[in-house]
Design a protein around this nucleic acid. Structure first.
Length: 806
RNA sequence: GGGCCCAUGGUCUAGUGGCUAGGACACAACCUUCACAGGGUUGGGGCAGGAGUUCAAUUCUUCUUGGGCCCACCA
């Protein structure tokens, strides 16, 4: 059998994608009795194209999926897309050049739906292209009716449990997005800021100086505080200060939250400038908050002349006014860390609004317990989960003042203002369109629908349910829960992972999955995070075009699980080289196997026993590593074994037996064929999860006819159990001799085929064993004559002494 | 301020309480008609620093230095 000279990934890879889809190679079988391995696949957000980081971590989870499938398990590997929420809105606003806020919700949502439909196929193709072996027929979108129903049902259940409440409370708001956001969506920003020292008159002809970085909140000022132990200010406590310009009179009170060593030691409180204000207000309920800011970050009529300004504008105006009033004593530049919205980078504001919350701060211990029931790979990632829980300060704000999201299924009675919650049988509902099924208790039939939508994470935290409930069979649903694996990257442990545990805790009283596998990030060549703004983003499509999906995966298999990996284009060359090498080795093998019928020889030659024994060990090791999600070890072990043990040594050693059956005997040839067939097939299978395309190509070209399974990816994971310590010792000795001769030839600048006149070997090997391998050594070294002397019983300095005469 | 991870040739990495610390890329020399020039062979070059545990430390402990990530602080 003759193979084409070269393998062309550009042609082959799309060919196999089609084949897999047509043959339903990755289909989950709901009827099967086989053990299920289920994966809670991360739904990528359609707001961005697949980037290198995606291909990196999706490749890593796919290694595991493919391995488990080859173990014979019924792999439940759904695929979803996240097209719900802010990120999607933003993309659509940009694509269609519209502003959602200025449109009717229905109109905008319709536009979102159609746009998302338009781009979906192209978007998903990128995931298929890298060889993701998900069952793409088990598909969901986080905004479709199915997901809406489940997400709203979750809301209803939590509401019934008393876990959801609505409250007018200070919340974090993104002025740019004009919505409330949650603690998890915050990102730190370090910046320089000005600390203003402001002089305020105090009754009784005194004065004091307070320091602030937030002059713009002047109109909200409710008090000035000093530390109770601060002797500098003792005499002022209880008196009234007048804020310059606003002429507002505020009490000077003692509060130990005040830092004596910051600014002047006196601070003016203007809820809500930050989290401390919230605490301060709670401690002093007698002080009345003024709420001068709206959620779009603009000041309202309570801010008087500053109405309509945002923080930055108001700051300038207030400072200007203070300067005119000669109230500014000093300005100081200080470093400051502020919270920004991680999606858009806007500095957030604290605004009191009506919001919906999930009450869960009382359950921190339980969440930590749940985290410990899950097996983490790598284990240390659990620390991040626990660290996050320890630092949680807010209940989960799940309402967003946006358009494109899953509506909160609630109405308010026009007459009595009661909250009316939707009924499960009417889900999904849009309260702006639909009506409650029953009248209000007060008899009224007029309602105002809740305008807010749910936080994206309130839905994506339900992905296990969304995927599982695509199947209506209850027994199957139970079998699928908890899932086997949650694969994801480490940046969303606090978002997706934690929130999913929370939802599962409430709805199932169980962990959502047994294992989590946390992958790292693909970094730029210098080890920096890739980001659009830095311009260091690498497009995986370009790399696949230039190299191949297999090479990209080969690269992704090179890092330890959880580790970030800087991307160097040259690393893709390695994958290509491996592909070429295995192509050529297989070409050689298939040529010599064309007449092989799969027979097991009665007597297996020493060197064939040697390779099969080595193979058995690699196989065992690889299986264990894969079980522990250590795919990089499997890849490395297989790669080394293939390249060096198999190609460099074994193939060279058996060549003579394969080519010259007339001299060496047909038994010797069949034995070599047996070794060759089984070793190559096993290598291809071990490599199949990592490089699904080239392995499929080689499998189809030759092995399929002999193995009778339609794809290597559903073939059985190899079980070679031919360990033979004796053969390994003798084989290793042969390799040492061959390597020695190679080195000699290289040093003498001779061709590797150059004949050796006389080869003298002294070794701790029995003559009976040497006789078995002599012909193989002769052939592999081109030795004309070999003198062998066993050193048994003697105690030579070296185990082996070799001399070659040319 | 708290937590976590990491430090191995020029670059990216594997790994181990004890063999000559493994590989890839880059570099150098050599080798081609019989699987492979999209190749092969051979070679040069490395465990951040200090202290400790140990018969033995690149590996374990601790400190220092340097890098990365998460969280808190935010007047």
């Amino acid at each position: 059998m003759e193979l084409p000279k070269n393998y062309d990934a550009k042609v082959s890879e799309p060919k196999w994608l089609e084949f897999w889809e047509k043959e339903k190679v990755y289909a989950f079988n709901p009827e099967s009795k086989a053990e299920i391995y289920s994966i809670d696949t991360p739904p990528p957000t359609v707001s961005g194209k697949m980037h290198l980081g995606h291909s990196f971590s999706y490749a890593q989870q796919d290694f595991v999926a493919r391995f488990q499938r080859m173990l014979g398990k019924n792999v439940f590997y759904p695929f979803g897309v996240d097209d719900n929420g802010l990120a999607t809105e933003r993309m659509i606003e940009k694509m269609k050049n519209v502003k959602g806020q200025f449109m009717q919700r229905q109109e905008f949502v319709k536009l979102c739906y159609t746009t998302v439909e338009e781009i979906r196929n192209d978007f998903v193709y990128d995931w298929k292209r890298i060889g993701t072996s998900a069952d793409f027929n088990i598909f969901y979108s986080t905004i479709n009716n199915h997901s809406q129903k489940i997400s709203q049902r979750s809301f209803l259940e939590l509401y019934k449990m008393g876990r959801i409440y609505r409250k007018f409370a200070p919340s974090m708001a993104c002025p740019n997005c004009a919505t409330a956001i949650a603690q998890v969506e915050l990102k730190d920003l370090e910046r320089m800021s000005t600390l203003y020292y402001i002089k305020a008159q105090v009754d009784g002809n005194e004065s004091t100086v307070f320091a602030t970085t937030r002059p713009e909140l002047m109109m909200a000022c409710i008090a000035i505080s000093v530390h109770p132990d601060d002797k500098r200010f003792n005499h002022l406590i209880g008196k009234t200060a007048t804020i310059p310009v606003s002429n507002e009179k505020v009490p000077i009170i003692a509060d130990d939250m005040t830092k004596m060593d910051f600014g002047t030691g006196a601070v003016y409180w203007c809820p809500y400038g930050d989290m401390n204000d919230i605490e301060f207000v709670a401690k002093h309920p007698d002080l009345k908050v003024k709420h001068i800011m709206n959620r779009d970050g603009r000041l309202n009529e309570k801010a008087g002349k500053y109405k309509g300004m945002n923080s930055e504008e108001a700051r300038k105006a207030v400072v200007n006014d203070w300067e005119k009033a000669e109230a500014v004593v000093k300005e100081e530049q200080i470093g400051q860390v502020v919270n920004t919205h991680e999606r858009c980078g806007t500095v957030i504001e604290f605004v009191a609004m009506d919001q919906w919350f999930i009450k869960y701060l009382d359950l921190k211990d339980d969440f930590i317990k749940y985290g410990r029931k899950i097996k983490w790979y790598p284990e240390h990632m659990r620390a991040r989960y626990e660290n996050w829980i320890h630092g949680l300060k807010w209940d989960w704000n799940i309402s967003r003042q946006r358009h494109f999201g899953i509506p909160i299924p609630v109405w308010y009675c026009k007459k009595c203002n009661a909250i009316i919650v939707a009924e499960e049988k009417q889900l999904p509902v849009d309260p702006l369109v639909d009506k409650p099924l029953k009248k209000c208790k007060c008899g009224s039939n007029e309602f105002i629908g809740e305008k807010d939508v749910l936080d994206t994470w309130a839905t994506s935290s339900l992905t296990p349910d969304i995927a599982i409930e695509l199947f209506k069979n209850k027994t199957l649903q139970e079998k699928l829960h908890p899932m086997g694996l949650r694969p994801q990257a480490h940046d969303i442990i606090t978002f997706w992972l934690f929130n999913t545990v929370v939802k599962s805790y409430f709805h199932h009283k169980n962990i959502p999955w047994k294992n989590v596998m946390i992958s790292g990030w693909a970094l730029d060549p210098k080890g920096k995070k890739m980001s659009k703004s830095k311009g260091n983003v690498i497009d995986p499509r370009e790399m696949i075009g230039k190299y191949s999906a297999d090479s990209l995966r080969f690269w992704a298999a090179g890092s330890r699980l959880g580790d970030d990996l800087p991307f160097q284009e040259k690393d893709l060359v390695t994958g290509n080289k491996f592909t070429t090498k295995i192509w050529n080795a297989s070409k050689f093998a298939f040529m010599h196997l064309s007449d092989y019928k799969g027979e097991r020889p009665s007597k297996i030659n020493m060197m064939d026993r040697w390779i099969l024994s080595k193979l058995s060990k690699v196989m065992k090791e690889s299986t264990e590593n894969f079980m522990n999600y250590e795919y990089s070890h499997t890849k490395l072990a297989t790669e080394t074994f293939f390249w060096h043990t198999f190609c460099d040594n074994y193939l060279e050693i058996i060549k003579d037996r394969l080519y010259n059956a007339d001299k060496r005997g047909s038994d010797a040839r069949v034995s070599a064929q047996f070794g060759l067939y089984n070793t190559l097939l096993t290598i291809i299978k071990l490599m199949a999860p990592i490089m699904p395309f080239i392995t499929e190509e080689l499998y189809q070209l030759y092995f399929r006819n002999h193995e009778n399974v339609k794809s290597v990816h559903i073939s059985k994971w190899p079980e070679v159990n031919m360990e033979d310590e004796h053969a390994e010792r003798i084989g290793d000795f042969v390799v040492k001799v061959v390597e020695f001769v190679r080195k000699q030839k290289s040093e003498k600048q001779l061709s590797l085929k150059a004949p050796v006149k006389k080869l003298t070997i002294k070794a701790k090997i029995e003559e009976i064993d040497f006789d078995e391998v002599e012909s193989d050594i002769k052939a592999a070294t081109s030795a004309e004559q070999i003198i062998f002397e066993p050193t048994r019983g003697k105690h030579p300095e070296k185990d082996i002494e070799i001399e070659a005469e040319f």
